[in-house]
Amino acid sequence: MSDAEEDDLDLRELDDDELVEQIQDDLYDGLKDEVVEGVEILLERGWKPYDIMTKALVGGMDIVGKDFGDGILFVPEVLLSANAMKAAMDVLRPLLAETGAERIGTMVIGTVKGDIHDIGKNIVAMMMEGAGFDVINLGINVDADQFITAVKEHKPDILGMSALLTTTMPYMKTVIEALAEEGLRDDVVVLVGGAPLNADFGKAIGADAYCKDAAEAVQTAKAFMQRRHNRRASA
């Protein structure tokens, strides 16, 4: 037997825990086909789509996000991982709808006008979806009118805005002011993100929170939903 053959691995030989770990590793390495195959095997074994999403995919992508933050992975590696996760989500999404899995809340997200950076925004969208939110992704170069229309139409709990350019960051404030003018500001929790932003900027423009990465976005959104839930329960 050659070394190569010895190293070969049939995913079906792995038990559930090993397979989840392998999916996370393959996600880390951006191996799209392998990730999808692993997800399909978990489905065959009776795993719920929601559990696959949170345990295998979101868990794996959290590691990718952390290593990107620490300067261990770079943009192309993150992109390959994100593409692999996207392919797996495409398999799970229709099943989630079928199984009527409970959704935590709704988010509208977009990159603001003038900016067409969307890698980070798409990862946030995917991770929020993975965490159980319905996500309406408005794409790039989104102006205030488009944000307002989407808020009116989808009545989201969370509105997320992304900007990667110094020149487009201020537009987030324009959107927040437009929300206030329309009397919609108190209906949504506004989260902002993007590499050049920071917490002070978030506060200065009147956002509810700035999140440094997708993991923090999920955590923050969940915390807001919990608070909202408690308020409603006690009302």
């Binding site: 190293d7 070969d8 691995l9 049939d10 995913l11 079906r12 392998q22 880390y28 390495d29 290593d67």
Partner: peptide
């Protein structure tokens, strides 16, 4: 034929250790 894949040489996450 069942798809065969390469396993990480030193077990899972070896690549991550390498990158770190």
């Amino acid at each position: 034929a069942p798809r065969k894949r390469r396993r990480r040489h030193a077990g899972p996450s070896a690549l991550r250790e390498q990158r770190r």
